[in-house]
């Protein structure tokens, strides 16, 4: 998956990010990160906690500004949030005062796309896509963790973004729900053809969901290695316990454990 010649859909060039913290003073969260994600790819980023992988996503989404370097999406520099770059946050940050349907129409409503009836129709399509039926009028407090995460996925996809960033989207659901949702994410990726870049702290999840797995070092975060996952799509439950995942897992685990000396 080289990026020679062609401009990648998401192009991260020499990004460094410093933070000013009260306790530790100036902290370098990321150092000289280069990354290219092609149109339609699904790529996982993995690394120890605090390695700046979420910070990287927030910068691609235009929510944080890099200290140096630049980020291009579709060839143009990112300055500020843009609905064409969707992001799904940890722990389902949907709006608690809006019903499931109202949450999914949010982006369309803000940008005044279509009539209210048209927006509701679009939202129902996306709720259907994530396997939620008959819960339109329910408030988030009346939904399970897995359902809330599905609403969050529908909310982001309803904006029809070109790139979808996922920040540990399945980190706070139980392991059974998590495996189901992983398969849903893959199905949605295949059906929608969107570019997906996801951050996770589960090695198995990174391998199972990604065409490529990018491994980051502890702070200051750098990309230390990149693995191609030689598994075809659609992926199956058998692959989770198969030799490809097991071998890659061992290799990535060793890399992370030795602290990314490379």
């Amino acid at each position: 998956m080289g990026s020679e010649g062609l401009i990648a859909q998401v192009q991260v060039e020499g990004i460094t990010k410093h933070f000013e913290t009260k306790r530790e003073g100036k902290v370098t969260a990321l150092r000289a990160v280069d990354l290219a994600v092609q149109n339609g790819e699904i790529v996982s980023i993995i690394g120890p906690s605090g390695c700046g992988k979420s910070t990287l996503l927030y910068m691609i989404a235009g929510l944080l500004v890099p200290s140096s370097g630049r980020i291009l999406v579709d060839g143009s520099p990112v300055n500020g949030p843009d609905p064409k770059i969707g992001i799904i946050f940890q722990e389902f940050r949907i709006f608690p005062w809006r019903t499931a349907l109202e949450n999914v129409v949010f982006g369309l409503e803000m940008r005044r796309i279509g009539t209210a009836a048209e927006r509701a129709r679009i939202a129902r399509k996306y709720l259907h896509m994530v396997g939620l039926e008959g819960i339109d009028e329910r408030l988030p407090k009346e939904l399970s963790g897995g359902m809330k995460q599905r609403v969050a996925i529908a909310q982001t996809f309803a904006c029809d973004p070109e790139v979808v960033l996922m920040d540990e989207p399945l980190g706070s659901v139980d392991s059974l729900t998590r495996e189901t949702l992983q398969d849903e994410v893959l199905r949605i990726w295949q059906e929608s053809g969107k570019t997906i870049l996801l951050v996770t702290h589960s090695i198995e999840e990174a391998i199972y969901l990604g065409q490529r797995v990018i491994v980051m070092s502890p702070r200051p975060g750098r990309i230390i290695r990149e693995f191609s996952v030689p598994l075809p799509f659609p992926r199956s439950a058998a692959m989770r316990t198969g030799p490809v995942v097991a071998d890659l897992r061992t290799e990535i685990w060793a890399l992370i454990r030795e602290g990314g000396g490379a």
């Binding site: 927030y58 989404a61 235009g62 929510l63 949030p81 843009d82 609905p83 770059i85 969707g86 992001i87 946050f89 940890q90 722990e91 940050r93 949907i94 709006f95 005062w97 949010f106 982006g107 803000m110 940008r111 909310q155 982001t156 904006c159």
Partner: peptide, 23 residues
């Protein structure tokens, strides 16, 4: 993250105030 979620979904400053922060 609620504010960020709204901003990445196209909410402008006034919408952010009235539709997210006030509620």
């Amino acid at each position: 993250f609620l504010i960020w979620n709204a901003r990445t979904k196209g909410a402008n400053a006034l919408q952010l105030l009235m539709r997210v922060m006030v509620p």
